[in-house]
């Protein structure tokens, strides 16, 4: 691979990838007030990692964010979502009834806000973990067609 060929791409993406990841977190935590939320933020985080692996090579990306970590993240996100429901059950409410989480008086909104934040965090983990492991599974295979045939 000729590294001089891609020097502009490398420099620009090195500057862009942290901004993309930061924007993902903004979308995640500003989702209550504007457009956005766990699904969008999860995709944006996954795309930041995919951009890194497209430019610096899949092996470098796997060293930075290991496939095992990504798979664990996906499972953790789903468990976090389901766990919030179990927490509400333990507190004596219905499954995923956030009003019961903190045992507040009726009309209090802290339980709702906490529940929404935890659930969106679970969605973020599950979506970004699943999408990155899907990309790793595709990119991990080397094609039978050689580059010269393009």
């Amino acid at each position: 691979m000729n590294s001089d060929h891609h020097v502009i791409l490398r420099v620009v993406s090195k500057a862009l990838i942290p901004v993309i990841a930061l924007f993902g977190f903004y979308v995640q935590f500003h989702g209550d007030f504007g457009p956005g939320g766990g699904f969008q933020a999860g995709v944006i985080m996954a795309v930041a990692i995919i951009l890194y692996s497209l430019i610096f090579g899949i092996a470098a990306a796997m060293r930075a964010i290991t496939p095992g970590f990504v798979r664990g993240l996906a499972a953790l996100g789903f468990l976090l979502f389901a766990g919030v429901g179990v927490w509400a059950l333990i507190q004596g409410g219905d499954y995923l009834d956030y009003d019961a989480l903190l045992g507040e008086e009726p009309g209090g909104h802290h339980g709702q806000h906490l529940g929404i934040m935890l659930v969106e965090l679970g969605v973020l983990f599950a979506v970004s973990g699943s999408l990155v492991s899907i990309f790793y599974a595709f990119a991990g295979r080397v094609s039978e067609i050689r580059d010269e045939d393009w």
Binding site: F39, S130, L131, F138
Partner: peptide
Amino acid sequence: MLTAIVVGVATLAVGLAIVV
């Protein structure tokens, strides 16, 4: 529809894996 888009891309990935 928001969730349908994300689920759609996940199922698309399964379809492409089967094609591979």
